[in-house]
């Protein structure tokens, strides 16, 4: 470092000066810099280009179909994509996708935070490693296995819970009985919550574990109990991390396909609209996956791509919000 500085300055002052000694060694370093900088820059550009191209592809493919659409794309529940006068809209898909994901968040965030607190604060030391590993292994279970397990086994566990809620709270439109016995929105949400639990837990655990000892001790020295210490020191410190963890998990829940496709029970055309979480319905991803065989004309394909575009924008927004929160966190910790 110190040896190269004077010669660098000399070189920039007099460009055509003869090359200083030890050129070989320095040029090797330069070449390494060049390759690394090029590779890094190339990867960065590649990622941005990929996302942009996917966006452009979706828009370009969707527009012709959208122009032919006889129904209102954002508010219609119909889905007839063939023929000269196609009528399709995403209202039902958006409702199912978003409400199932919100249910997933409502379960996964509190449980995930509680598990993370247990692992970082309450669990005896010998249990911390294994407990964390077990949770992480939930993330390693393939999506399709979740789907199989949900349909064949877990369904019968959740059924009684659904029945109970419908009996007790059926008066509220959100919990009104519908008679759908297969994959209700509620059930999709519950399964999704298990699938995103590792994301929430792992990220929360990370940020809770980073709570400075001085903050924890400050609370304890004031006579805080463990829970009070968590409330005054750990949670305020970890809150931005928990929020971004929830956002990342939400992005995952919105786009989850295989497991959900296994579970959903599609509604017959013309089924009356219901706000009930115990209704059936398809998500964006499951509608597209279920109809992959229909992609035989540009118009049909375009309709599905338009639905995919909405999902893309939705998850993009959620991830963007997560990034912004993470950035705020970085600025805050300075």
């Amino acid at each position: 470092m110190t040896t190269s500085t004077p010669s660098m300055a000399a070189r920039s002052a007099a460009a055509p000066a003869p090359a200083p000694p030890r050129t070989e060694q320095r040029s090797t370093g330069r070449l390494g810099d060049l390759i690394f900088a090029g590779a890094a820059r190339g990867s960065g550009v590649l990622v941005i280009a990929l996302v942009t191209l996917i966006g452009v592809f979706l828009v370009a493919q969707a527009i012709p179909a959208l122009l032919k659409d006889q129904a209102s794309f954002l508010t219609s529940r119909e889905w007839t994509v063939a023929g000269d006068a196609p009528r399709f809209g995403i209202a039902e898909l958006a409702w199912t996708t978003v409400s199932a994901s919100i249910i997933a968040m409502a379960i996964a965030v509190p449980v995930g935070v509680a598990v993370a607190l247990f692992i970082t604060t309450y669990a005896p030391t010998w249990l911390r490693g294994p407990a964390a590993t077990m949770i992480d292994m939930l993330a390693a279970v393939p999506s399709i296995v979740y789907g199989l397990w949900a349909v064949l086994s877990f369904r019968s566990v959740v059924r009684p819970v659904e029945d109970l809620i419908q009996q007790r709270l059926g008066g509220i439109p959100l919990f009104a009985p519908t008679g759908v016995s297969g994959g209700t929105i509620f059930f999709i949400g519950v399964v999704l919550s298990i699938m995103v639990l590792p994301i929430v837990t792992a990220l929360s655990r990370e940020v809770f574990a980073q709570t400075p000892t001085s903050h924890r001790e400050a609370a304890l020295a004031l006579g805080a109990t463990t829970w009070e210490m968590v409330r005054t020191a750990v949670l305020p410190f970890g809150r931005p991390g928990v929020i971004s963890a929830a956002m990342l998990a939400l992005g995952r829940a919105l786009g989850e396909t295989i497991a959900v496709t296994f579970i959903v029970s599609s509604l017959a055309p013309g089924t009356p609209w219901s706000w009930s979480l115990f209704n059936g319905g398809e998500t964006f991803a499951s509608r597209i996956a279920n109809n992959a065989g229909e992609f035989d004309s540009a118009q049909k394909t375009g309709a599905f791509i338009a639905a995919g575009l909405v999902l893309f924008v939705l998850t993009f927004l959620v991830n963007a919000v997560a990034r912004i929160v993470i950035q705020r966190r970085a600025a805050f910790s300075e």
Partner: peptide, 9 residues
Amino acid sequence: FQRPNPFPT
């Protein structure tokens, strides 16, 4: 404590 440790939030 040795280092001032007010609750930062």
